[in-house]
Protein backbone atom coordinates (compact mmCIF):
# COMPACT_ATOMS: atom_id res chain seq x y z
CA UNK A 1 0.00 0.00 0.00
CA UNK A 2 1.44 3.33 -1.04
CA UNK A 3 0.66 6.18 1.28
CA UNK A 4 0.96 9.88 0.78
CA UNK A 5 0.50 12.40 3.53
CA UNK A 6 0.84 15.75 1.80
CA UNK A 7 -2.92 16.33 1.94
CA UNK A 8 -4.16 13.82 4.55
CA UNK A 9 -7.73 15.07 4.60
CA UNK A 10 -7.95 14.89 0.85
CA UNK A 11 -6.50 11.55 -0.20
CA UNK A 12 -3.95 9.26 1.39
CA UNK A 13 -3.56 6.56 -1.22
CA UNK A 14 -0.89 7.01 -3.90
CA UNK A 15 -1.87 8.34 -7.29
CA UNK A 16 -1.56 4.93 -9.04
CA UNK A 17 -3.60 3.21 -6.37
CA UNK A 18 -6.38 5.76 -6.50
CA UNK A 19 -6.57 5.54 -10.26
CA UNK A 20 -6.55 1.75 -10.14
CA UNK A 21 -9.35 1.78 -7.59
CA UNK A 22 -11.42 4.06 -9.80
CA UNK A 23 -10.80 1.90 -12.86
CA UNK A 24 -11.92 -1.18 -10.95
CA UNK A 25 -14.92 0.70 -9.64
CA UNK A 26 -15.92 1.60 -13.17
CA UNK A 27 -15.34 -1.87 -14.58
CA UNK A 28 -17.62 -3.93 -12.36
CA UNK A 29 -21.27 -3.90 -11.48
CA UNK A 30 -22.56 -5.72 -8.43
CA UNK A 31 -25.67 -7.44 -9.65
CA UNK A 32 -26.46 -4.39 -11.75
CA UNK A 33 -25.68 -1.91 -8.98
CA UNK A 34 -22.95 0.64 -8.80
CA UNK A 35 -21.86 3.19 -6.26
CA UNK A 36 -21.15 6.88 -6.44
CA UNK A 37 -18.20 8.53 -4.74
CA UNK A 38 -19.94 11.54 -3.23
CA UNK A 39 -18.96 13.17 0.02
CA UNK A 40 -21.23 13.44 3.01
CA UNK A 41 -22.95 16.79 2.46
CA UNK A 42 -21.32 19.40 4.64
CA UNK A 43 -24.40 20.12 6.80
CA UNK A 44 -24.44 16.44 7.74
CA UNK A 45 -20.78 16.61 8.72
CA UNK A 46 -21.64 19.46 11.07
CA UNK A 47 -24.62 17.46 12.31
CA UNK A 48 -22.30 14.60 13.24
CA UNK A 49 -20.01 16.96 15.12
CA UNK A 50 -23.08 18.29 16.92
CA UNK A 51 -24.17 14.75 17.80
CA UNK A 52 -20.79 13.96 19.36
CA UNK A 53 -20.87 17.18 21.35
CA UNK A 54 -24.47 16.56 22.45
CA UNK A 55 -23.69 13.00 23.44
CA UNK A 56 -21.11 14.16 25.93
CA UNK A 57 -23.08 17.14 27.15
CA UNK A 58 -26.33 15.31 27.79
CA UNK A 59 -24.72 12.41 29.59
CA UNK A 60 -22.64 14.49 31.97
CA UNK A 61 -23.44 13.17 35.43
CA UNK A 62 -25.63 16.16 36.23
CA UNK A 63 -29.03 14.84 35.29
CA UNK A 64 -30.82 11.98 36.96
CA UNK A 65 -28.42 11.98 39.94
CA UNK A 66 -29.31 11.60 43.63
CA UNK A 67 -27.41 13.00 46.59
CA UNK A 68 -25.07 10.58 48.35
CA UNK A 69 -23.67 10.42 51.86
CA UNK A 70 -21.18 13.18 51.10
CA UNK A 71 -24.04 15.61 50.51
CA UNK A 72 -25.90 14.73 53.70
CA UNK A 73 -22.80 14.63 55.90
CA UNK A 74 -22.88 18.38 56.76
CA UNK A 75 -26.50 17.96 57.91
CA UNK A 76 -25.60 14.98 60.05
CA UNK A 77 -22.68 16.83 61.62
CA UNK A 78 -24.89 19.78 62.44
CA UNK A 79 -28.10 18.02 63.46
CA UNK A 80 -27.26 17.73 67.18
CA UNK A 81 -26.14 21.33 67.56
CA UNK A 82 -28.02 23.67 69.84
CA UNK A 83 -29.06 25.87 66.95
CA UNK A 84 -31.00 22.96 65.46
CA UNK A 85 -32.32 21.47 68.69
CA UNK A 86 -33.85 24.81 69.69
CA UNK A 87 -36.04 24.89 66.61
CA UNK A 88 -39.61 23.83 67.31
CA UNK A 89 -40.79 21.76 64.33
CA UNK A 90 -39.14 19.17 62.13
CA UNK A 91 -39.83 21.32 59.08
CA UNK A 92 -37.95 24.24 60.56
CA UNK A 93 -35.05 22.00 61.51
CA UNK A 94 -34.81 20.63 58.00
CA UNK A 95 -35.09 24.08 56.47
CA UNK A 96 -32.21 25.25 58.61
CA UNK A 97 -30.11 22.12 57.98
CA UNK A 98 -30.67 22.18 54.22
CA UNK A 99 -29.61 25.79 54.02
CA UNK A 100 -26.61 24.98 56.20
CA UNK A 101 -25.54 22.03 54.07
CA UNK A 102 -26.02 23.96 50.85
CA UNK A 103 -23.73 26.67 52.17
CA UNK A 104 -21.13 24.08 53.20
CA UNK A 105 -21.26 22.34 49.82
CA UNK A 106 -21.14 25.55 47.82
CA UNK A 107 -17.36 25.62 48.12
CA UNK A 108 -16.80 21.89 47.43
CA UNK A 109 -14.97 20.77 44.30
CA UNK A 110 -18.10 18.97 43.15
CA UNK A 111 -20.51 21.82 42.35
CA UNK A 112 -23.61 19.64 42.11
CA UNK A 113 -24.27 19.42 45.85
CA UNK A 114 -26.58 22.38 46.56
CA UNK A 115 -28.76 21.66 43.53
CA UNK A 116 -29.10 17.99 44.43
CA UNK A 117 -30.16 18.82 47.97
CA UNK A 118 -32.70 21.30 46.68
CA UNK A 119 -34.24 18.79 44.29
CA UNK A 120 -34.23 15.86 46.72
CA UNK A 121 -35.49 17.13 50.07
CA UNK A 122 -35.26 14.75 53.00
CA UNK A 123 -37.39 14.55 56.14
CA UNK A 124 -36.13 14.85 59.72
CA UNK A 125 -37.10 11.23 60.39
CA UNK A 126 -35.21 9.93 57.38
CA UNK A 127 -32.19 12.00 58.30
CA UNK A 128 -32.16 10.40 61.74
CA UNK A 129 -32.33 6.97 60.13
CA UNK A 130 -29.37 7.53 57.87
CA UNK A 131 -27.30 9.48 60.41
CA UNK A 132 -25.71 6.44 62.18
CA UNK A 133 -24.65 4.98 58.84
CA UNK A 134 -23.06 8.23 57.73
CA UNK A 135 -21.26 8.68 61.07
CA UNK A 136 -19.91 5.15 60.85
CA UNK A 137 -18.68 5.76 57.33
CA UNK A 138 -17.01 8.95 58.49
CA UNK A 139 -15.17 7.26 61.34
CA UNK A 140 -14.17 4.10 59.50
CA UNK A 141 -12.75 6.14 56.57
CA UNK A 142 -12.71 2.98 54.53
CA UNK A 143 -14.30 4.43 51.42
CA UNK A 144 -14.94 7.98 50.27
CA UNK A 145 -18.32 9.17 51.54
CA UNK A 146 -19.52 9.62 47.97
CA UNK A 147 -19.55 5.81 47.63
CA UNK A 148 -22.55 5.51 49.93
CA UNK A 149 -25.91 5.69 48.18
CA UNK A 150 -28.89 7.02 50.05
CA UNK A 151 -32.40 6.17 49.05
CA UNK A 152 -35.24 7.16 51.34
CA UNK A 153 -34.12 6.24 54.83
CA UNK A 154 -31.59 3.64 53.73
CA UNK A 155 -27.87 3.92 53.22
CA UNK A 156 -25.78 1.39 51.37
CA UNK A 157 -22.42 0.96 49.76
CA UNK A 158 -23.33 0.54 46.14
CA UNK A 159 -20.42 1.75 44.18
CA UNK A 160 -18.31 -0.04 41.70
CA UNK A 161 -15.94 2.65 40.73
CA UNK A 162 -12.35 1.72 40.71
CA UNK A 163 -11.39 -1.90 40.70
CA UNK A 164 -10.15 -3.28 43.96
CA UNK A 165 -6.62 -4.62 44.08
CA UNK A 166 -4.12 -6.33 46.33
CA UNK A 167 -0.71 -4.65 46.37
CA UNK A 168 -1.36 -3.31 42.93
CA UNK A 169 -1.96 -6.81 41.54
CA UNK A 170 -4.88 -6.33 39.14
CA UNK A 171 -5.66 -10.04 38.91
CA UNK A 172 -5.13 -10.93 42.57
CA UNK A 173 -7.76 -11.44 45.23
CA UNK A 174 -9.62 -8.17 45.64
CA UNK A 175 -9.52 -6.30 48.93
CA UNK A 176 -11.58 -3.37 50.02
CA UNK A 177 -9.25 -0.67 48.85
CA UNK A 178 -10.43 1.00 45.66
CA UNK A 179 -7.53 1.35 43.31
CA UNK A 180 -8.81 4.40 41.55
CA UNK A 181 -11.47 6.97 42.29
CA UNK A 182 -12.84 8.96 39.43
CA UNK A 183 -13.65 12.67 39.73
CA UNK A 184 -17.36 13.52 39.76
CA UNK A 185 -17.46 14.64 36.13
CA UNK A 186 -15.74 11.54 34.81
CA UNK A 187 -18.08 8.60 35.02
CA UNK A 188 -16.80 6.65 32.07
CA UNK A 189 -16.24 9.84 30.06
CA UNK A 190 -12.49 9.47 29.58
CA UNK A 191 -12.77 5.93 28.30
CA UNK A 192 -15.49 7.19 25.99
CA UNK A 193 -13.33 10.00 24.72
CA UNK A 194 -10.65 7.45 23.92
CA UNK A 195 -13.14 5.17 22.19
CA UNK A 196 -14.70 7.92 20.08
CA UNK A 197 -11.29 9.31 19.09
CA UNK A 198 -10.16 5.83 18.10
CA UNK A 199 -13.26 5.47 15.95
CA UNK A 200 -12.80 8.74 14.14
CA UNK A 201 -9.09 8.17 13.52
CA UNK A 202 -9.81 4.75 12.03
CA UNK A 203 -12.70 6.18 10.01
CA UNK A 204 -10.58 8.99 8.60
CA UNK A 205 -7.86 6.51 7.67
CA UNK A 206 -10.44 4.31 5.91
CA UNK A 207 -12.27 6.98 3.98
CA UNK A 208 -9.22 9.02 3.05
CA UNK A 209 -7.59 5.94 1.59
CA UNK A 210 -10.42 5.97 -0.97
CA UNK A 211 -10.09 8.07 -4.12
CA UNK A 212 -10.96 11.65 -3.24
CA UNK A 213 -14.61 12.58 -3.57
CA UNK A 214 -13.63 15.03 -6.29
CA UNK A 215 -12.92 12.11 -8.60
CA UNK A 216 -16.12 10.59 -9.87
CA UNK A 217 -16.11 7.10 -11.36
CA UNK A 218 -17.22 7.28 -14.99
CA UNK A 219 -20.25 4.99 -15.05
CA UNK A 220 -20.60 5.16 -18.83
CA UNK A 221 -17.63 2.80 -19.08
CA UNK A 222 -19.53 0.09 -17.19
CA UNK A 223 -20.31 -2.81 -19.39
Amino acid sequence: MGWKFDKPLHEMASEEESTAMLRQWESEKHGGLWEGNNRLPLPFTYLIALIVLTAFMITMPIWGQRPNAEHYAPMVNEMDSAAVQNLATDEEKMKYLTAFAMKELATASDPRGPGLLERHPITWDDLQNIAPGIREAQTSQKYPLAFYNIVGDKIALANFEGNRTVNGDFFGEPTNAPARVQPWFDKGMIIDLFYVSYFFIVLILITKRLPSFTRKPDMSKTS
Binding site: I51, P61, F160
Partner: peptide, 22 residues
Protein backbone atom coordinates in the same frame (compact mmCIF):
# COMPACT_ATOMS: atom_id res chain seq x y z
CA UNK B 1 -26.31 -1.26 40.69
CA UNK B 2 -24.09 -1.65 37.65
CA UNK B 3 -20.78 0.23 37.63
CA UNK B 4 -21.48 3.92 37.25
CA UNK B 5 -18.79 4.31 34.57
CA UNK B 6 -20.37 1.53 32.51
CA UNK B 7 -23.77 3.21 32.55
CA UNK B 8 -22.35 6.57 31.53
CA UNK B 9 -20.20 5.00 28.85
CA UNK B 10 -23.30 3.27 27.51
CA UNK B 11 -25.30 6.50 27.57
CA UNK B 12 -22.73 8.38 25.50
CA UNK B 13 -22.55 5.54 22.99
CA UNK B 14 -26.33 5.42 22.97
CA UNK B 15 -26.51 9.01 21.70
CA UNK B 16 -23.77 8.27 19.18
CA UNK B 17 -25.98 5.70 17.41
CA UNK B 18 -27.34 8.79 15.69
CA UNK B 19 -24.13 8.83 13.60
CA UNK B 20 -24.85 5.61 11.66
CA UNK B 21 -28.48 6.67 11.48
CA UNK B 22 -27.62 10.01 9.89
Amino acid sequence: PLPEWLKSFASVEGVLILIPAV
